[in-house]
């Protein structure tokens, strides 16, 4: 089995005439955390959304190049998009708990996917534990998910994603609205989860990428400028633009 869970080759993404990603080529290694950093408009979220074909939902989208998941082209006409999104889960910047109980939030996707009721208890506990939320909510699983704090809501969303037992977890600025303690809990969860999942983390907080990512890619104006081990990107970046960004000279 290749070390790369996802292989991206000359990926170009166009929205109408505008090219948002410029021929990105990189491997996303399995069971590691890939951090993606870059200023606003650099294409990092576009890249993330391309990995589970969320960009397909935008009109006038045109994609060139290849994205291979375990060697299979996810844009191939025979590739099942629903199955893809089960295999590649996503957590967004703003936590969006569904207006139902914590328990029902976690099993929502699994229930739609046909998981039997007798599996739900175990699934909820396992997912909430993996998201580092179980101890805080185990005595109130049937209260509304909307009543949790922001940090807890985000971990509930992570648990909901994990309940689908994905292979890859995409996170789009998951801590942007969270306090330092909640952020630390999410980061701690990610560090442990990578043993089982491949994680791609888009973040505007370069320090967060430095703390949790094994590898980091720097995007600028739709181009992937540099990609390498996080320790190298934050100490001896090869490209001056990367140096200027990670030292806060722009962005």
């Amino acid at each position: 089995m290749s070390d790369a869970k996802i292989v991206v080759r000359r990926l170009g993404v166009f929205f109408g005439q505008a090219q948002s990603l410029r021929w990105v080529t990189m491997d996303v290694p399995r069971n590691r955390i890939l951090g993606i950093i870059g200023p606003s408009g650099s294409g990092k979220t576009t890249f993330l959304r391309t990995l589970n074909r969320l960009n397909d939902l935008s009109p006038d989208t045109h994609i060139e190049g290849e994205v291979l998941l375990d060697g299979q082209d996810i844009h191939h006409p025979n590739f099942d998009v629903v199955a893809l999104r089960k295999r590649i889960g996503m957590v967004f910047a703003l936590p969006v708990p569904l207006p139902m109980s914590i328990f029902d939030n976690v099993v929502y996707g699994a229930r739609l996917a046909g998981v039997k009721r007798d599996k739900w208890d175990e699934l909820v506990e396992r997912s909430l534990r993996a998201a580092f939320l179980w101890d805080e909510v185990k005595d109130r699983l049937h209260t509304s998910g909307m009543r949790l704090s922001g940090g807890q809501q985000q971990r509930l969303c992570l648990a909901r994603t994990l309940a689908m037992e994905p292979e890859v977890v995409l996170l789009d600025e998951p801590c942007s609205g969270l306090d330092p303690i909640s952020t630390a809990k999410i980061e701690e969860a990610l560090t442990i989860l990578k043993a089982k999942y491949t994680i791609v983390l888009v973040t505007n907080n370069t320090k967060q990428a430095a703390r949790v990512a094994d590898d980091t890619a720097f995007f600028l104006m739709g181009e992937m400028v540099e990609h390498g081990p996080t320790s190298q990107i934050f100490t001896v970046p090869r490209d001056k633009r990367t140096n200027d960004y990670v030292t806060g000279r722009f962005g």
């Binding site: 370069t206 430095a210 934050f234 100490t235 001896v236 990367t242 140096n243 990670v246 030292t247």
Partner: peptide, 9 residues
Amino acid sequence: RQPTASDLR
């Protein structure tokens, strides 16, 4: 400041 890259060096 938690410096990085050239600043850290």
